[in-house]
Design a protein around this nucleic acid. Structure first.
Lengths: 338, 338
DNA sequence: ATATTTTCGTTAAGCGATTAACTATTGGTT
DNA sequence: AACCAATAGTTAATCGCTTAACGAAAATAT
């Protein structure tokens, strides 16, 4: 492969001049610029990035980090959409994405990354880092910052440079819509709150709107696990507790879809007998029977925003956090209560 | 950040010695080895990968390439599982994954990658390349090879170093099982064959088994598009053509799931009135109503194999192609015909 | 006409590793 | 005692690029 040297020789100038032409430094005459560019394309020269990185400190590599959790990340379509958003922005600016999935060990209270990740951060290879979607993300980001690698956290509110979805607003949106459709007997399928900040926020939003609606009865809530099986189980418990519900809000789509089959098993028709709404707008939500009314977190926008935020940091700015507003996706599973 | 120099100074040896210790070169005494290692951990030294890359040519970066196709890749759970398999093997060996999604322009007959990809390949940054799952993958791989970057193609049969699923065997498996359950009136929902080598193979397998079963009627086949809507439409056409079918083989799960709702709309119960099988074992297949009998391509194994193949090439071996056998996943949607 | 900028290009010193070539020491053979 | 091989460590060149420092020439100002 040709080097800068080769180009310089061919163009009859010094390597410094070639370098200046390629980096658009001023004070190069049209004539020599052309000579150089001709040589570049004649030789099909491309810069050696390792050399450039060593010499300039700019690697054009950004690490995108999600903690390795066997079952979650790779099956989570949301993560992929986020990645899509990140990728678009970064490659448009000439950056490359290095995928990092640190294995986690919990030491004391804080998450600790594996040696591979530590090496990566301290290797000088990565110019910046985007940590996605998990509580651990925060500690990865702050570890990176500690070693002078600018980082952005995507997914929750901790730390300085973050991008996240407004889950509180999403919760409100959901309950507002259910109320607007005339429902007054509403039940919630949720998960244990400690686990998940996002879910806590959603619940706060839901509760806030319910409270201000002036309904006497307390809101029935059943907690189960994240899966669709969890949703199916929960719906049985919930209806045993409050048989006259006309609408169920599930805290995520997987549980909502579980609820759908749970209700079918109980002989209830959705949405004729009872309405169901979810949260996340996973692909499955659009093809479920009936199609699920839900909240879309705008994952691609989240990814875009995170990448943009990082790029601005890399250019020396100090941008502020970004909050992305979720939107309601109206489909069949929520019907009007006469 | 500390450099080799710093470590050498602290340990009271030359940089060459430090380098030897870190690369496990023989002829270093226990005593100095210990001194060096002590200095390394005292300073928390990690090698600068850019410098190492420049000097040794080894970057520990492998590019994983899938063509950028807005709608396909990021929504394809299979791709993610494959990536999972690739990631596990690669990071276990200390390699990093660089995600590349070249934009494609078709010039003449062959796919051409964008400048970003070309630069990447010629940048010296990547030691090897795994191209995934699309017809274009082949040309990316051969482009890389042309520039001395060892490449592996994952997903079809073209070229020298490839890993792929035996779709012919998968097709056979499916038809064999349907026949074994006693079905004789069988219909196929497929897609236009030109598009997709994998689908062609599946169809060949299906046909081969059907032919040798000695059934007189020709196999009714309807072609539609890949989506679940496509499946729903196809099932109507198919039943209009051949009303007495007892089983339908859809060429992928999305279409199978479309077929499921199409059949429901036609008032047919699955699997009591008619059986349905799919192909791919997407996550949705496990939660569909009824749960779908299908073929699993073992995407994680595919990823593992591709990564392993590449690593062996990087070690100078010349491994042969790998074929992964698909497996049948028996679930509810296929029932026995008495 | 002289002094001062501005423009254009070169020289050469790094960046932080790896590694071939070399020297020095030790130990084993005969 | 002389010779050779194996062991232990050093020196210095090299990878391909960037960039500070410098100098010459051209343009502008005084």
């Amino acid at each position: 492969m040709p080097t800068l040297q080769d180009v310089a020789k061919k163009a009859g100038v010094s390597t410094a001049t070639v370098s200046k032409v390629l980096s658009n430094t001023p004070y190069v005459s049209e004539a020599t610029r052309d000579k150089v560019l001709d040589a570049v394309s004649a030789l099909e020269y491309r810069p050696n990035l390792a050399a450039r990185a060593l010499s300039s400190g700019k690697t054009t590599i950004v690490a995108v980090v999600f903690p390795y959790i066997y079952d979650t990340i790779f099956k989570d379509p949301l993560v992929m959409r986020v990645l899509e958003g990140v990728e678009t922005v970064l490659t448009a600016e000439g950056y490359n994405i290095l995928l990092s999935m640190p294995r986690i060990s919990h030491i004391g209270d804080d998450a600790q990354a594996d040696e591979h990740f530590v090496r990566l951060v301290q290797s000088g290879y990565i110019e910046g880092l985007i940590a996605i979607d998990n509580v651990e993300a925060f500690s990865f980001a702050s570890f990176a910052e500690k070693h002078n690698v600018p980082a952005v956290v995507l997914g929750h509110h901790m730390g300085d440079y973050t991008v996240y979805s407004d889950n509180y607003a999403g919760g409100k949106l959901l309950m507002e819509q259910v109320l607007a459709e005339g429902h007054r007997q509403i039940g919630i399928i949720s998960v244990a709150l400690e686990t998940n900040l996002a879910v806590q926020e959603r619940m706060r939003g839901i509760q806030a709107v319910y409270q201000s609606a002036g309904i006497d009865e307390p809101l029935p809530i059943v907690e189960s696990d994240f899966s669709s099986q969890g949703g199916a189980k929960a719906v049985t418990t919930l209806l045993a507790q409050a048989p006259h519900l006309t609408a169920i809000i599930a805290i995520n789509d997987r549980m909502a879809i579980g609820a759908l089959s749970g209700l079918q098993a109980l002989g209830k028709r959705v949405p004729d007998d009872i309405s169901v709404v979810g949260y996340d707008n996973i692909p499955l939500a659009g093809v479920a029977q009936p199609q699920l009314t839900t909240i879309d977190q705008k994952p691609v926008d989240l990814g875009n925003a995170a990448a943009t935020l990082l790029l601005r940091r890399l250019q020396g700015e100090t941008p502020t956090n970004v909050v992305i507003d979720p939107v309601l996706i109206k489909r069949e599973s929520l019907s009007t209560r006469r």
